[in-house]
């Protein structure tokens, strides 16, 4: 893929839940390797927006292309498209019935992307990368929240995604565990992978984001570098929000 072509292309998407409109005519391009941090008050539609990018939510109108796949086209093989879009959830969602290692290997082995031995090796490498090389045989409920989230990141990485989506990855964590997850995400951002991160961690946004997007009431109200959006917000809504969270 050419360096100057967006890897995520979002064109005029709208999303309603019943009579409630969550996303209003949003457009956005994300370039390969870019780290985009999405902030905004709860209910602003930022999580829904993220979930539309791998079609966990279907848009009502508009067009989404990720990594060459027309996500919003009903004829697209969505399972194929999702293989290259990793997602990390607020509540980790590790498979409770499997060991940590199996959590990571089950999908690549089942989908015949690699053999079991190769997958085990890869899983071990990824676990080492997130600092959990010795926990492969543990079950999710034996891990702390921070450890669970690091396993969840490793699980997503095992599919060799081009894009990683993070849906408030540290919001369900005890404060002392937030940093271990953010450290892993920082390391990841240096690896050249494209990331879209919905978060309330302004420090992370400042340090890692190439671009910060402020969403409010279903639209992108403001975007720019962390400095532009966080330090010199143009709209009063952004200033209000930042005043409350900073």
């Amino acid at each position: 893929m050419a360096e100057n072509k967006p890897i995520i292309h979002v064109e005029h998407i709208s999303k309603q839940f019943g009579v409630h409109t969550v996303l209003r005519d949003i457009s956005l391009d994300v370039m390969p390797g870019e780290v985009v941090v999405v902030i905004g008050p709860s209910g602003s539609g930022k999580s829904t927006f993220l979930r539309c990018l791998n079609q966990l939510e279907k848009v009502n109108s508009g067009r989404i292309r990720v990594n060459g796949f027309e996500i919003s086209d009903p004829n697209t093989d969505i399972n194929q498209a999702r293989r290259h879009i990793g997602m990390v959830f607020q509540h980790f969602n590790l498979f409770q019935n499997m060991t940590v290692l199996r959590n990571i290997t089950v999908t690549p082995v089942d989908l015949k992307i690699m053999g079991k031995e190769e997958a085990d090796e890869l899983a071990l490498r990824l676990l080492n990368r997130v600092g959990l090389g010795d926990r492969g045989n543990a079950y999710p409920d034996q891990l702390s929240g921070g450890q669970k989230q690091r396993v969840a990141i490793a699980r997503a990485l095992a599919m060799a995604p081009m894009v990683m989506l993070f849906d408030e990855p540290t919001s369900a964590l005890d404060p002392e565990m937030v940093n271990e997850v953010l450290e892993v995400m920082k390391e990841l951002s240096n690896s050249g992978i494209t990331m879209v991160v919905v978060t309330h961690e302004m420090g992370f946004a400042r340090e890692v984001a190439d671009r910060v997007i402020f969403m409010d009431d279903g639209i992108i109200l403001e975007q720019g570098t962390a400095e532009e959006v966080l330090d010199h917000p143009k709209s009063s809504r952004t200033r209000d929000f930042l005043g409350k969270v900073l």
Partner: peptide
């Protein structure tokens, strides 16, 4: 928890799998 299904689907598993 519905998140279990979502996580599996997000990795590229089919609904049945």
């Amino acid at each position: 928890d519905h998140g279990q299904m979502e996580a599996a689907r997000s990795l590229g598993m089919s609904y049945a799998r």
